[in-house]
Amino acid sequence: MASIEKDSVSGQMTTGHEWDGIKELNTPLPKWWIVIFWVSVIWAIGYWIVYPSWPTTSNYSHGLFGWSARGQLEEDLKDQKLARSQWLSKIEAASVEDIAKDKSLLNYAMVGGKIAFGENCAACHGTGGIGRPGAYPSLADDVWLWGGTLADIQQTITHGVRNSDPASRGGDGSATMPSFGADGILTPEQISQVAEYVVSLQKTPAAGSPGEKIFNDNCVACHGQGGVGGGIPGAPPLNTAIRTFTKPTVEGVIAQVTKPHHGSMPSWGRRLDATTIKMLTVYVHSLGGGK
């Protein structure tokens, strides 16, 4: 028969259970623990009332103050917008040239532009505008396919390159390189000769070579005398090692001349607001050395 008794050695009460002569001491949880436990329970009930917690058949209990995580986020975003508005309204009102001249505006636009660049542009043009050879042009060097002034860059970002936007760069086909090989304008032999001449432009041009004549007949209009560029927008200079779609080797040039690769870029004016594009313009301009 179980009976609660006092243990002689420890002076504690037993639980009253006995198994083969072994009795268990009753060691209750400490009082402070019990108190905290019940306080937590009461706290939890208060929490249910104040905060949304219980699902109902069609909705949920909204709590006393109608707090929600989404509402909190919207509140925070509103605060953020308010905090930024004094700068953003100034940028909205200023031209990109004015922003570049005002040091405090420039500082803000550079930071904002860097973030916008990371979110929208870096996927193709790389962090810091390093570009990807063979696919996307570098923005970090001093070669600008579509012009390197602030206004040029703003125009290129707003309308993009070779897309459905009527104002896009080369959208009217004016900056499309002919397929000299695929369309049979030049023979493969001629292409090899001109390619050798183009590669030689980087160092000492091979004057008087057959390639030079072919170049002067077919390429100078767009790529400039001696390949210095500047013929038409979108035609890169050829007298440097900087290339976008080809390696600066004979094979690379042959591939491009035979069946040219053309890049395109979305019209960001349809996706981003004018203020963001201004900040992006100033940032991209600075990447190329800001000249």
Binding site: G126, T127, G128, I130, S138, A140, D141, D142, V143, P237, N239, T240, A241, I242, G289
Partner: peptide
């Protein structure tokens, strides 16, 4: 600057 480490101009 780490990206790019350096740039060669034209």
């Amino acid at each position: 600057e780490r990206s790019p480490l350096y740039v060669q101009e034209r």
